[in-house]
Design a protein around this nucleic acid. Structure first.
Lengths: 407, 407
DNA sequence: ATAGTTTGTCCCGAAGTCAAACAAACAGCC
DNA sequence: GGCTGTTTGTTTGACTTCGGGACAAACTAT
């Protein structure tokens, strides 16, 4: 039951019905492939003639192709349809505070190359130069991959969706930076930019990368734990952005008003308890927030900490367990607030998931409002699945499959 | 950019375009009334012929009627169109722990009678009996109001949307109660049931009751402060319900892990700081949660407390100011999490809004992630606007104006 | 009275879905 | 090899809807 916005609505025109059904067909092929025209007609409860017209249109647009014929017990064999991901690629870029990662993927998010990385130049102009050069080389090295449909870029910061400007990225020291225009100019490709947490959530919704091939559709949350805590929220099949592009900033929801100081200036934010900095600070016994970049221990990561914990270091174990507990307590707030069908957790901490899952679930159950909510599915997303890069790829590929805006 | 759910989609049929445009016309008449066919055609950028056909259909269905002719400088005068709210009524019921309220309203939520109330019988069967009898009398006393389209009921508890069963209402001691079926059987009317916070949010979205006639469309949150804290969330024009019907339970998001005990069993929930109980407990200097119903001071309400504060009682002022501060701190969490365009606050505490607004805004600004977020619009909704009853009415009236489900 | 303007209706072409008919492809059986 | 029954995919005509232009109605100004 959605309200129609009386100042921003979309009337149905002659081609609207076709547009709607076209997108449904595209999505069904995507999620059921391989599938025949006849099966599509049955699934959609429309006549086979309608399906034929739509599918032939999609084939003409080279979005779908006819593959092998299928097997049936009796009668004429069906011709299978597939999403045409051949020779269409997407560049995925993940800009992080110290390093930038790059990958080539196909229309369905399947990686076509390994991940390459280079240090992040914090000067936006210089970064665009390097990025454009690297992307050019990457595409030149893989001519067999086909034409590039666009570049998806994720950044650790607030992004204004309408203009795709980076409003604020504290770890990069950026304010109101426009990467899109210069990068598009330098590469001649379309560029999409989004906050990394949101993009990760988007990728999970479209089930790009690994995981189940066709996930149950539902509201989901992606919690990305690194230097900060980024959260992406999908509700009713749509990304939440909010009035000021800060929707989903659960990292700065209070756990304890009197808690440790957070990088945002407040006290006791969730981020101040579970970020990698907080976990390491707990281990080293010093305050988490001591300037923009902590001196000393700089090269000691949460991964190293987890290795020590596995080696039997009691202090390391305690630090990780404490983080696990606060992770679970914060997840309880997220779940009480949004009640998603599934929460995905990304970040280095997932390396220790087997060690911490129990503590996370226990803490969650402690504060969740109902037992069912406490049992909400929580899935760790390993770094090897490259959730950020999948998110970047999704920025470019998802629009082709999105529902038309109507009413 | 919404994803199409591959296992629950709506294909476009022959009449889908018409259905879409019909709902748009209905909404435009509602929000721009009075308006002519020609203006509708201009607003929608469709031909006048299309508008004529749709409008004539709506007139035939008695959803719209032609009123007076308008004034123009030149040319033929337009005939104005109006939503036909005449002789169509809705019964709104607000079941609360101790009292139940009842009102008759028209299709647009305008109250047709005063609010009547009677003590709530906590036995569901007996309550349905009383409710049906009262509704029957109410309708019999107002035959001039026309036919009744249905009954909207709001309850302080979790409601399963699909079945409209009350899963859990702690203050009433209900678990898995079905009010809908027996009430529908007893009255012969359609019955809609919803959680009170959600219904309040729904009513604000449709701008029923007072306030601006056509509000800016946007994501909004309704925070209802009474014995507990109920929250309703509208995102992308739709009510958030979540996987287990608990979405929006910000009342049980932590403010401080070590905070006061909450009725839900956890510690330091927002509710434990700002509920009426918590405010009164602060004044009387005793723990907020001392059994299902506090002994003593039972008849002393937050309204009384506010009266004392206005009279100069320093302890009363301190108690209210403390609540104001925690209200603002919690709102910061809500705003950081959802970033709505507007937050509505209901409950007795709004009686003191002139006293507390400063403290609320200051606390909000303190923890809000950005200055813009800290400046998010916050509107008190006075009890005299009957937000719960407006919500109950909206349950019945809103579906007629909702966008068709498509794609 | 006449000209000009705006509203609301009518009519026909374009585009889409629906149901039914039809050709194509295939397995099994005589 | 030829016939039959079945399933797939295409085609065709009926029905619905939007789009644009023509037209009558209603009204003001001159």
């Amino acid at each position: 039951m959605r309200r129609i916005n009386p100042s921003r609505f979309a009337v149905a025109k002659r081609g609207t019905s076709r547009e709607i059904n076209r997108q449904i067909v595209l999505n069904l092929i995507r999620s059921h492939q391989p599938i025949s025209r006849a099966d599509l007609a049955r699934l959609m409860a429309v006549s086979r003639g309608t399906v034929t017209l739509i599918v032939n249109g999609l084939i003409a647009e080279k979005l779908v192709f006819e593959g092998a014929t299928g097997e049936t017990v009796r009668g004429r064999k069906p011709t299978f349809l597939y999403i045409d991901a051949r020779r269409r690629t997407v560049v995925a870029a993940d800009i992080r505070a110290s390093e930038t990662f790059l990958m080539l993927a196909d229309l369905l998010g399947k990686p076509l190359t390994g991940v390459i990385s280079f240090p992040t130049d914090r000067d936006p102009k210089a970064l665009v130069q390097v990025l454009a050069a690297r992307i050019g080389r990457l595409l030149a090295e893989h001519p067999e991959a086909g034409t590039c449909e666009g570049i998806g870029v994720v950044v650790p910061g607030m992004v204004e969706h309408a203009t795709m400007r980076v409003l604020h990225a504290p770890t990069l020291g950026w304010r109101n930076v426009d990467l899109r225009e210069p990068l598009a100019a330098a590469t001649g490709l379309r560029v999409q930019i989004e906050n990394s947490g949101r993009a990760c959530a988007l990728a999970q919704m479209w089930a790009l990368g690994g995981g189940a091939p066709v996930p149950s559709h539902g509201d989901l949350v992606f919690v990305s734990v690194s230097d900060g805590v980024g959260v992406g929220v999908i509700m009713n099949g749509e990304v939440l952005r909010g009035r000021h592009n800060i929707a989903g900033e659960f990292g700065h929801v209070a756990l304890s008003l009197e808690g440790p100081r957070c990088s945002c200036g407040s006290n006791g934010c969730w981020e101040a308890y579970i970020s990698n900095r907080a976990t390491l600070a707990r281990y080293f016994g010093r305050p988490a927030h001591t300037g923009p970049q902590d001196a000393g221990h700089r090269h000691f990561t949460v991964g190293d900490l987890i290795a020590r914990a596995r080696g039997g270091d009691a202090k390391a174990i305690a630090a990780i367990e404490a983080t696990a507990r606060y992770l679970g307590l914060g997840l309880a707030s997220v779940i009480n607030a949004l009640d998603p069908a599934c929460v995905y957790v990304g970040g280095e901490i997932t390396l220790a998931w087997d060690l911490i899952e129990g503590a996370v679930r226990a803490a969650l159950a402690e504060r969740a409002l109902t037992p069912a909510a406490g049992a909400t599915e929580i899935r760790p997303v390993a770094a090897t699945e490259h959730p950020r890069l999948q998110g970047a790829a999704a920025l470019v590929t998802a629009p082709a499959f999105a529902a038309p805006v109507v009413a």
